[in-house]
Design a protein around this nucleic acid. Structure first.
Length: 337
RNA sequence: GCCGUUGUAGCUCAGCUGGUGGAGCGUGGGACUGUUAAUCCCAAGGCCGCAGGUUCAAAUCCUGUCAACGGCGCCA
């Protein structure tokens, strides 16, 4: 009979209670007493406790290796799935076979950690529950963007990333050697999109973007992925509405598919509910300055960009995202995230 | 680019007015049949960022330098 490997999520559902099950994964935590060892195994879908009792494994080696194996060792486990309130998640596997596929080196990330350490060990930090959840949400968001635009008759249009010119004023370019010439990494698809709308009319993309700014804020990075749309015949009001619908669509998708991840990240989901239910307002730039002055006592000179400081204050007056428009130009889009 | 802060064990940090380098976690060994990054005992582990200087004596004071982080500016 072919062995069936079940994902953790499936095991925690309780459907297989009392059955002999098999699991492949990586050691997330490990603890042991004299004759009983507990390891928590993780895979991409969650974590589950495996209990290894010295006298109940088929071969003693199973018990010894469970005691020895360090965090992130890869393992294959077979045992009876039991309901047990003492186990995190409510279920555990009482192992009959605990096979260490590969013994991991000492895992450098411990209880005490710093941002720098986590960055230096990004390849390992990716395995954390936190990063796993963030990456799942990110995947949901990207997928939702594609679904949103395709569902409304948009075509995906992919611009070149090597571009010979500058499109957005101000922000700096990354220069790249292009054989014996120079070129730049894309900061936007703008010029290509403007050419393509006369062919496809409605287009969007999700693509890498590079800006050589030495800014050090949580909102500025040198490389990021940007979703952009462009359409023929469209006016500001229409574009604004699409942006609102898009955000709402993405939000609803994340709330639907990433409930567990939001929990792991300890996000306060109730803050997102108004955005799911209520329309997002559009206000003028002038109105935004009035709100800042009247409700928050902040004087901003007319014509100045709103900084993070002002945006944050402005958002205290709203419980959903808000669009701020400036004559015929979209100035800023502010989200509650 | 400017200003500031910090560099001490694998990690997170303490180390007073200069006088023989410390803790917790992790790791290795030992104990424990219900643990929740458990508990208890033992051990190993250090160019005190680097280079000068002051001093009988420097992790500690001074100068320089490198790196990281934070703020501002620029920018989205």
């Amino acid at each position: 009979m072919r062995q069936v490997w079940l994902p953790v999520k499936e095991l925690l559902s309780g459907k297989h209670e009392g059955e002999l099950v098999s699991l492949r994964g990586w050691i997330y935590r490990t603890r042991s007493s004299g004759k009983i060892a507990f390891t928590v195994i993780r895979d991409s879908t969650g974590i589950i406790q495996v209990t290894i009792v010295k006298n109940e494994v088929e071969e003693l080696e199973s018990f010894e290796s469970a005691r020895k194996a360090l965090m992130e060792s890869s393992v294959k486990v077979t045992g009876i799935l039991k309901k047990d309130d003492r186990a995190p998640g409510g279920f555990e596997i009482l192992a009959s076979i605990f096979n260490v596929v590969d013994y991991a080196d000492i895992y450098p990330i411990t209880k005490d950690q710093s941002e720098v350490l986590l960055r230096d060990n990004r390849h390992l930090w990716l395995r954390s529950r936190r990063m796993t959840s963030i990456l799942k949400i990110r995947s949901t968001v990207t997928g939702a963007i594609h679904d949103f635009f395709r569902g409304r008759g948009y075509h995906e249009f992919t611009p070149p990333i090597f571009q010979p010119n500058q499109a957005e004023g101000g922000s700096s370019l990354f220069e790249v050697k292009y054989f014996d010439k120079k070129t730049y990494l894309s900061q936007t698809w703008q010029l290509y999109a403007e050419a393509a709308i006369f062919s496809l009319e409605k287009i969007y993309d999700v693509s890498p973007t590079f800006r050589a700014e030495k800014s050090r804020t949580s909102r500025h990075i040198c490389e990021f992925w940007m979703a952009e749309m462009e359409a023929a015949w469209m006016d500001l009001a229409e574009v604004t509405e699409i942006a609102k619908e898009e955000l709402k669509f993405i939000l609803a998708r994340v709330m639907e598919r990433n409930t567990e991840d939001l929990k792991i990240l300890q996000r306060d989901v109730t803050k997102l509910m108004p955005s799911l239910e209520k329309p997002f307002p559009t206000i003028t730039y002038t109105k935004a300055l009035e709100i800042l002055k009247d409700e928050h006592g902040m004087e901003v000179e007319w014509g100045k960009d709103l900084r993070t400081l002002e945006e944050n204050k402005l958002m205290e007056s709203f419980d959903t995202p808000v669009v701020v428009i400036f004559s015929c130009m979209l100035l800023s889009y502010i989200s509650v995230f």
